[in-house]
């Protein structure tokens, strides 16, 4: 019997309201206040976007300031670590002579052509192995073995095979970029829920239409993740490839600077590589937004 029923029966509501029911004593629980109010929101949550952006810049600015300070104060020799202002001057020098611009064009062209060829190769093999049993049997085993070879280890071999000109460099970038996109394409195609395929079959899709309307669109996020990794690899391979007797490109600027002991230019060159990486990442984000509008997390995130 509950309190309420007992109360109704006896008609004495007030007196019995805290009386034990069925001999059990209900202990008053300790309450926690979860209502919205001052207590819950910290001040930082209410900071304006500008305040938060400024805060993000805080650490990088402090590092630059410290870097400048140790150089100016003579704590570290400017020969070993030139100050940020010297790096800016080096950039200025490279831009005025036009070296930087032509080097960026040359290096980007190398990375992109390797990425396009290697990426297409990886995509084609990934689709073939993902969609067809034959392709799986023929290619997946060898690809899984070959991907274990660090591409940089191939440099001596490629020099013997292709010489020390452009071919060896592009070949290295191709091998570095083919694997990430292969693996992700294969996994994306294989990972599709069989229930979706069944629904496609019920509604009359043949193999070609299943691939075009269900499998490829659904595997696309995974394929683009592969492309993102491949883009990263293309840059790594570019840096390694440009150590092979470069006569142009960012690697060449670095080689010359190295011979002339110009640490400021070396650091400038490294920064250019980093900026190329940032540009590629931004480009990939743009591509993902363009091709995956249905991924609400990307659009709204």
């Amino acid at each position: 019997m509950t309190d309420a029923l007992a109360t109704l029966a006896e008609g004495t509501g007030v007196a019995r309201s805290r009386a034990p029911a069925g001999g059990r004593v209900s202990r008053s629980p300790q309450l926690q206040d979860l209502s919205p109010g001052e207590a819950r929101s910290t001040r930082w949550r209410q900071a304006s976007p500008w305040q938060r952006r400024a805060t993000r810049l805080l650490v990088p600015v402090l590092i630059l300031a410290a870097w400048q300070f140790v150089s100016e104060a003579g704590l570290v020799s400017t020969y070993v670590l030139p100050p940020p202002t010297a790096i800016l001057a080096a950039f200025h020098e490279l831009i005025v002579t036009g070296e930087l611009q032509s080097a960026i064009v040359t290096s980007s062209a190398r990375a992109l052509s390797g990425l396009v060829i290697g990426g297409s190769l990886g995509l084609a093999l990934g689709l073939f192995a993902g969609l067809w049993k034959l392709g799986d049997d023929v290619f997946d085993g060898p690809m899984q073995m070959l991907r274990m070879v660090p591409s940089i280890a191939l440099i001596p071999l490629f020099i013997v095979w292709f010489g020390i000109n452009e071919t060896a460099k592009i070949a290295l970038i191709i091998t570095a970029t083919a694997f990430p996109i292969y693996l992700n394409t294969y996994a994306g195609v294989r990972g599709i829920d069989n229930k979706l395929i069944e629904a496609g079959i019920i509604f009359g899709l043949d193999h070609k239409k299943l691939a075009r309307r269900i499998i490829l669109p659904t595997a696309l996020p995974s394929i683009l993740v592969g492309l993102r990794y491949s883009a990263g690899s293309s840059l790594l391979a570019l840096v390694a490839a440009e150590q092979i007797n470069a006569r142009s490109g960012i690697g060449y600027i670095l080689t010359i600077a190295n011979q002339n002991q110009r640490v400021d230019i070396i650091i400038a060159g490294i920064i250019v590589y980093a900026l190329l990486g940032l540009a590629l990442a931004a480009f990939m984000t743009f591509v993902e937004r363009l091709f995956l509008p249905w991924r609400t997390d990307i659009v709204l995130g």
């Binding site: 979706l196 069944e198 629904a199 496609g200 509604f203 899709l205 659904t218 995956l292």
Partner: peptide, 16 residues
């Protein structure tokens, strides 16, 4: 439902 997430609702309805 077994809808293709990469296709709009109307495209799913006439998937075949």
């Amino acid at each position: 439902p077994r809808l293709v997430p990469a296709k709009r609702v109307w495209q799913n309805v006439v998937i075949g």
